[in-house]
Design a binder for these strands. Structure first.
Lengths: 228, 228
DNA sequence: TTTAAATTCAAACGTACATTTCAAACATGC
DNA sequence: GCATGTTTGAAATGTACGTTTGAATTTAAA
């Protein structure tokens, strides 16, 4: 049935599954090597350290995804005339789903790992990510800015991070959510289904009218209270 | 300057800070007791275990917040006529900010802890939370349902979880975000500022028009591809 | 002041972890 | 087929963790 895999490959496969399920810190090398049916020492032999294994697991997807995204962003930027927000966000879909070619359920696993990466570890992953792929995401910011010219840059900054949170958290708790959805609403939701539900949600959110505090305090008199 | 605090109090204060910063698993009891300047054994003496300490840290805020939320939800539900979505979401603001009375920066710390709770630990916190406060949140679902009568229940389920992700992730990485915002846009953003920015974002997101797959595939031809 | 309970303390316990070691097994080019 | 470099294996190392222990100390009631 299954082809013969190298030790590295077996380690990466087991590691990504356990990392996505339990997080980086809560997954031990012993769990990984035991699931991969390889020797404990082989992780350090092939990857150097646990830290480098984590990065290798992510790299397998990033080296596929990021050039694809970069290409899409560049294409949209070249169109000169501004794209709609939903057009911009839609370019994520295909590259993300193509991660399923890298590995079965690759898209889901990658997004889960991304979520873990942003909440689990404090330093090295964020650095690793920004250092290697920061420029690609700058293009995304530019595209969204063109799509929402009325949005102040600082507001856009916050809303893009809100959106990152939406995606990342949803994927981190994806398993639990999908189970509840299936039990409560009898609907099976795969990663594509979740992404499709995210698009209109995020489009509306990012493009939401900017509400000033004065406007808000009409519907939210709570803000008038002092001293807290 | 500072009043004399009991050992329990000192442990809770140190624990909440470290938990919020580093997460539950990545914070050791030795770090906590060393910051609190108490003996290592006192955690187990006063709280029983690390698990129970985590719950105690959260309880300090939950026992204040949840009855307040419950009261607000009940009040809105009693109005009979449906409330607008932004009215519903606005009731979170005051109770959340009142957590600053529980402890300095209590609102921020609590939301950060909530974020950690949803991503760090797998089992016991989610159970603890749903078991104790599930009924309060059922009222919220009802209110949102009334505010958005056109939203199918399953869509509402997903969007509320998307929104939870937005809040929870934003708070978990709040420190980093606030730093960047201050450096890039020269604007100091406190927890109240973040909450105020979240409200219009979430209102628009939850109430976004429901897009069907057919509609979407016009702007996102990516979905037409097969085999992935 | 006496006494009993509550609290603190230093030390140790057992466990799990990432990493290292080094000999054995394996593969590969000559 | 031998020698060389690569990979695996079982075992050990050292560290950090949560928790337990039992004696010392403080607290507070009698």
């Amino acid at each position: 049935m299954s082809v013969k895999h190298s030790t590295q490959h077996k380690i990466l496969d087991a590691a990504q599954t356990l990392f996505a399920e339990t997080g980086f810190t809560d997954t031990s090398l012993r769990q990984i090597t035991s699931m991969a049916e390889v020797n404990l020492a082989s992780v350090n032999y092939h990857f150097g350290s646990k830290k480098e294994l984590i990065q290798a697991v992510l790299q397998r997807y990033l080296v596929v995804l990021m050039p694809r995204l970069d290409q899409e962003f560049t294409r949209l930027l070249a169109l000169q005339q501004p794209n709609s927000l939903s057009q911009v966000l839609s370019v994520f879909v295909k590259p993300l789903l193509e991660l399923n070619k890298v590995h079965q359920n690759g898209a889901r696993i990658f997004l889960q790992l991304l979520g873990r990466g942003y909440t689990d570890v404090q330093g090295h992953l964020r650095w690793f990510f920004n250092h290697n792929y920061g420029r690609v995401l700058d293009k995304l910011v530019l595209l969204v800015q063109q799509a929402c010219p009325d949005l102040p840059p600082s507001e856009l900054f916050w809303r893009l991070h809100f959106s990152l949170g939406t995606v990342v958290f949803t994927m981190a708790s994806n398993e639990a959510l999908a189970e509840i959805a299936e039990a409560d609403f009898n609907e099976k939701v795969d990663i594509e289904g979740v992404i499709l539900r995210l698009l209109p949600y995020l489009s509306a959110a990012i493009a939401a009218p900017v509400t000033t505090v004065t406007q808000l305090s009409h519907t939210a008199p709570a803000l008038a209270i002092k001293g807290i």
